[in-house]
Each structure stands twice: as C-alpha cells, then as structure tokens.
Design a protein around this nucleic acid. Structure first.
Lengths: 200, 200
DNA sequence: CCCCAAAGTAGGCAGCGCCAACAATGCTGT
DNA sequence: ACAGCATTGTTGGCGCTGCCTACTTTGGGG
C-alpha cells in the first residue's frame, strides 16, 4: 500500500517502526555515517523533529536498530542449529548462519558491536548480547554432556568458540576478508576450532 | 617545550603531527564520535581551516590515525615474538601483545577496523593490513616447517589464527568481554587454538 | 632579491542534533 | 456526549560541524 501524498493524516500511525525500517535501509545502502535523523524524517515524510518523540536522541535510534539486529541474529542462529547432529555439523551450521548474517548486514553488525554502550552494563541491549552468548554457552554445555567437547568451564570454552566465530565475522565486516574467502574456508575453520592447528 | 602564547609563529612547524597527536588523545579520552576538526584546531591553537591544509577531509585524518595504529600494532607484535621458542609460547606472547594493544587503545582499534575503507583495496591503509596479516602468515609457515603446525595452505591457517586472536580483541573492544576476563582466559584460549576443544 | 608555492586565516554556507513553544489528535472518565 | 489531557506531530531557532573560496603571511629556490 503506497502512502497517499494528499492529506496524509496528522498522526502517522506507527512512525517509530517506519523510522527504524527506513533507517535500516539507509544503513545497509549508505552506511552508518550517512544516517541523519533529519533525512530520515524527510524520507518518512514527517517534520524534522518528529523522530524526537520516539527516540530521545540519535544514539537511542542506533541502539534500537542494534537491538533489532540482535533479535534477527538470535533467530537466525536458533533456526540454523540442529541439536541432534554431531558437534562439527552444528558448529558449521552456526558459523554459516553467523557469516550469512554479517554478509547480509555488515553495517548493522558494526553497529551492534560498536563501542558506544560502554559503561552501560545494563539495559535491553546488554541483555541481548547476554542472550546471544548464553545460547552459545548452552550449546557448549550440551556438547560437553555428550562428550563432544572437553570438560571445563563452559563460559570459558564458549569464549573460545565465540572469539573464533566473531573474529571471522568481524574480519569480513571490516572488509579485511572477502565473503567468498570466508565461506570457502569455513569448514576448515570449524574443523581447526574443534581439533586445533597443532599436529595430533 | 611549552608553546609560548605570545607571538606564536605564523607557521606552526609541524602542524600535521600535532594534529595527529591531539586527535589520538581525544580519541582515547572521548571516543571517535567526539573528534571534530574544528575542536582539534582549537586545541592545537590554529584556525578552523588549518587542518584542511594537511588532511583533505575528516576521513583522511581518521585514516592517518588508523595508519599510525597499524604501525604501532605491528611494532608491538614484532617486539613480542620470540622466534626461537615453541609455538605455544609464541602464540601466547602474540595474543598477549594484541590484547594489550586493544586494552590500551580500544577506540583506535575500532577505527582501524572500521568499515570505511570499503571498496578501497589499495592505498597505504590496505598495505598496513596486508603487512599485519603477512607477518602472521610468516609465523604460521615458520611453525609448519618445524612441524609445530599441521601442513596446509598457510594463508588459510593464518585466517584461523587471526580470527581467534582478533575475535577476542574485538569482543574486548566492544565491551562484550572485560579486559580482566580476556587476560585471565588467554592461556587457555591459545591452548584451545592449538589443540582444539574436542577431546583427543 | 624577488616571486611563488606552501601554510595559515577569515568568512560563509548548508546540514546536523537538540530544544522549546505551539497545534492537532484521539483516549478516558464522568 | 464531551471536556480535558497526554500523545504525537510541526515550526522555528541555536550552536555546532565539515567543507569551500578568497585572502594573508611566510620562507626558500631561481
């Protein structure tokens, strides 16, 4: 349904969602630096101060955007897992899903891991990060019970896994590694994560 | 030598270096978002357009800043390596040096891996990234010759190592992991990188 | 010694984020 | 039914920013 230009109602209906949607598009197409509240308002067809009713400041909008990113990422990771399969396949699926997410939304991932929530160890964003790590920890603990991963503090082992996965994703997001190379080396990457790079 | 306020010479002498130094300080203390060319000019005591003589635009200054970051990181990594020691110690030293760098310069690392040099596969910045990866590849190939790392494409194996190291660093820079936790788990991290997380 | 390129200055422009004051709207209680 | 009010959108303005152009100062090479 296209918006009719004539006699747009005074109240938008769901301006907040419209702003987030438009912002995500701009983020994907032109990067975070090109995001401006005023241009966003223009795109959506409201006055330049209207966004201020829904986001206390620009950072609040960026945070909301990052939050939707975590929700989508978490869904993608959840959908990719196959709990009954052996650990190597589960890891590979997870890694592929994460890599797919970052390839589709590189600027969004940059936002999600931006250094802006710094002292803020609370809030919905921190919860989202926590939940993402939590699901990974769960997977590690699960695999430990089956004897597929060495015993030890699951949190610590999760960090090893998370570092490896996120490192690859971050390098792709930073354009230090092409998506093709990353995908091509993914199976090997997971294998080395499980079995190491030292000779057995 | 303090600058004398009275009769400051018309020409600064080395404005470019002074700007970079002041910028790095601001970056460390207040983050990249707080960096403004005009404020920088004020801090250094020149007019608001003076920086434009040395940096074509703001991005050029950020790039120059990132470049100094790569130089320092490369030096730190080079100084940390101990080529005659066994691979686990070398890796641990490298990881510790990298982690130390990111703990000391989190905002700078963010800048170095910012998604701004996107289509730009050439230029001094890309060379710096290349060189950093190159030295890692060299270490991998070196260890392979000694039988400390499994055979295989050194580039691929380097990416495994780089992902793991950079992932940990990126998580610290993003405040998803505290420096203390990262340092505490570092030895274990390197061990798992070498020998895997699956039972032997 | 002069002259010109390099380096710094002054001013202005458009765009930005944020704020305060004002207007339209629709929900709620009586 | 409708008055009142909180919500949501509008207008205007402030100070800041990056960038541009034109002007001034300086110092070194022909």
């Amino acid at each position: 349904m296209l918006s009719m230009p004539a006699s747009r109602p005074y109240h938008h209906g769901d301006l907040r969602a419209a702003l987030l949607k438009s912002a995500e598009r701009t983020l994907r197409e032109k990067g975070v630096a090109a995001l401006s509240l005023r241009e966003l308002a223009r795109d959506v067809g409201v006055s330049h101060a209207a966004p201020g009713r829904h986001f206390k400041d620009k950072q609040a909008l960026l945070d909301a955007l990052a939050l939707t990113g975590y929700e989508r990422l978490l869904r993608a990771l959840g959908a990719a897992d196959a709990p009954e399969r052996p650990i190597q396949e589960r890891m590979t699926r997870l890694a592929r899903a994460y890599l797919g997410f970052v390839i589709d939304n590189p600027a969004l991932l940059e936002l999600m891991f931006a250094r802006k929530h710094e002292p803020d160890t609370t809030g919905p964003l921190a919860d989202a990060v926590e939940e993402t790590f939590g699901s990974l920890t769960h997977l590690v603990a699960d695999a430990q019970e089956r004897g597929e991963i060495v015993p030890g503090d699951p949190e610590r082992l999760m960090m090893v896994v998370a570092s490896s996965l996120h490192g690859l994703a971050a390098l792709v997001a930073a354009c230090a590694l092409s998506p093709e190379e990353a995908l091509a080396g993914l199976d090997e990457q997971v294998h080395h994560l499980l079995y190491g790079v030292a000779p057995r």
